[in-house]
């Protein structure tokens, strides 16, 4: 099944989790999605394979970045009428605190959704949402280059 079909069914069922079947790496890493107060929240389950530094028991920055990027894509796909697979132009992450060995959650805010470019801010947190461990802003290209 292609992404457009999966997305359509996921929206009918209001089930963002079912979108993940289209994203092999996000699934392999342990990312899931659900609703929290009518907002899409993505989750990264704790697993040994997301630990970057064994001695410090800290999550690898790239794993947190993957959660932030996946959250941005899921939120964009959910918000668009017509299916366009978003492509990242650039992505800037600030790591605010060390990621501990526990579940991480992320939520995206689409700051501007233009015809060609979307600007998305995403934050990730662990137990306490008011104490984020990472924040990102991302430019996403919505229209594939023609020619």
């Amino acid at each position: 099944m292609n992404l457009a079909n999966v997305l359509e069914q996921a929206k009918v069922a209001s089930d963002p989790q079912s979108l993940l079947q289209c994203f092999p790496y996000a699934q392999a890493l342990g990312i899931s999605a659900s609703w929290d107060n009518e907002k899409l929240v993505a989750h990264l389950a704790f697993d040994q394979h997301i630990i970057g530094d064994l001695g410090a028991a800290a999550l690898q920055g790239g794993a947190i970045s993957t959660l932030l990027e996946s959250t941005a894509v899921l939120s964009l796909l959910w918000s668009v009428e017509k299916i366009q697979m978003p492509q990242f132009m650039n992505h800037s992450v600030e790591y605010l605190a060390s990621g501990r060995p526990k579940p991480t959650h992320a939520q995206a805010e689409i700051v501007r959704h233009g015809h060609q470019i979307a600007n998305v801010r995403t934050i990730a947190w662990q137990g306490d949402r008011s104490a984020p461990i990472a924040a990102a802003h991302t430019h996403v290209l919505l229209v594939p280059e023609s020619k």
Binding site: G52, Q60, T66
Partner: peptide
């Protein structure tokens, strides 16, 4: 490898894989 792909429908590895690779080389 296939497990690292962003999407089943098109394109290459997930940008998060690129992020992890760069985080590793830079650190």
């Amino acid at each position: 490898r296939d497990e690292l792909l962003a999407s089943t429908s098109e394109g290459g590895v997930h940008s998060g894989v690129v992020s992890s690779l760069l985080d590793t080389s830079c650190s």
